[in-house]
Computed example of a mutant assay.
Amino acid sequence: MDINGKVAVVTGAGGGIGAALADALVAGGARVVLADLKADGVESVAARLNEATPGSAVAIAGDVSRTDQIEKLIAAAEESFGPVDVYFANAGVGGGVDLEASEEDWDLAHQVNVMAHVRAARLLVPGWVERGQGYFVSTASAAGLLTQIGSATYSVSKHGAVAFAEWLSITYGDQGVAVSCLCPMGVNTDMLTGGAPITNETQRRAAQAVTDAGGVLEADEVAAIVLRAMEAEEFLILPHPEVKVFQSRKSGDIDRWLAGMRRYQASLA
């Protein structure tokens, strides 16, 4: 897809990958509706974009795991720019660590990292099928293909995000709906440490496992890779090429891979 002239919604756009995607989209000629739970962050990003390219961005604060909030984003896009062409389900949460994660941690990870994608697709895909064109971009994680040491809630929910993106592509890919799934490792954003100081050993090991496995990219590097992949409508977007190697090893011999992960975990202690 050529994003020039397209209308996009980007969630989790108050910073990190979401803000970088917004920058790249507007630079490429798209108009964007930006969403984030934190109003100050997303409004700041939209103001910066509109200063450089007047009328290019609208900011809306809200919980994008809720259907009514997603409806609000779609309505704002249609009112300001026209029908939504691309939806970036980019908002995400890290969640709790180890088996100490609470029921609330598990529910939050599931709602934001999985169900937010499902609810957006419910609202958009039927219209895209009718129009014969639409694009759903899911931000998952390398943890959704492999497994992150430390956080079960993050790993499990990101596996769910990957699985849902695969299902969307299989089910609607021949009806004009393109799907891409972004699975990075370390990116220099708050998500790398959960946006807060590391307070225990499990969190430290989780962050070290990500940064030691491959290079830490800047968010704008990832955004550029995403837009290039979208031009070719590639499903799996791997900013870190190491992930493809690790995924091959996992699928080739799961028992050996699990044993290796246990050894790697022990080496981080």
Rank of each mutant, 00 (worst) to 15 (best):
Y264G: 07
G28V: 09
D190C: 10
L108I: 14
G29A: 02
M191V: 12
A75Q: 15
G127R: 00
G41E: 02
S65N: 05
Q247M: 14
R119M: 07
V42I: 01
D40T: 10
V93M: 02
Y264P: 03
Q111C: 08
V243G: 03
A152M: 13
E43Q: 14
L123Y: 02
K250S: 08
S80A: 10
P54C: 02
A232N: 15
N188L: 14
G194I: 12
K72Y: 10
V245Y: 08
V216F: 00
E221H: 04
V114R: 05
I74N: 02
A59K: 11
D212T: 13
W106G: 09
A89R: 00
N200H: 06
V216G: 04
D63Y: 02
P241L: 08
Q265A: 15
G252F: 04
F246K: 15
A30N: 03
S44I: 08
L145T: 05
A163N: 12
N4F: 05
Q133K: 10
T53A: 06
T211K: 10
A27W: 03
N4H: 07
D63R: 07
S44Y: 03
L34S: 01
R228F: 05
D23K: 14
Q148Y: 12
H117N: 13
H159L: 06
V156R: 04
H110R: 12
N113I: 14
V216Q: 07
V32C: 03
E43R: 15
V9G: 03
G95Q: 03
G186V: 06
W106P: 10
A213H: 11
L21R: 12
V245F: 11
A19E: 02
A89W: 00
P126C: 01
S251M: 14
D107K: 12
N188G: 10
W257Y: 11
D174A: 13
M261N: 11
A224S: 14
G41C: 04
A269I: 08
G132P: 14
S65W: 02
S248H: 13
F136Y: 11
G94N: 12
G14Q: 06
A178T: 09
K6A: 04
V118Y: 01
L108Y: 06
K6V: 04
L108W: 09
E78Q: 09
A259M: 08
I17G: 01
A213F: 12
E51S: 12
G160Q: 04
E231N: 13
A152V: 11
A232F: 09
L34F: 01
A101P: 00
T139Y: 00
E130R: 01
G29M: 03
V187Q: 03
A8S: 08
E79I: 14
E242C: 09
H240K: 11
A52P: 05
G134C: 04
A152D: 11
I70C: 04
S56K: 07
Y154H: 02
I17V: 14
V33N: 01
A232P: 09
A77I: 09
P197R: 03
R119I: 13
Q111K: 13
A209C: 05
F235H: 05
A35I: 11
A101M: 06
S44M: 06
H240C: 07
R48V: 06
E71V: 10
A259C: 07
Q148A: 15
A19L: 07
G252K: 01
K38C: 09
F136N: 06
V7P: 04
A47S: 12
G150T: 07
L108K: 12
A121P: 02
A163Y: 03
P54R: 00
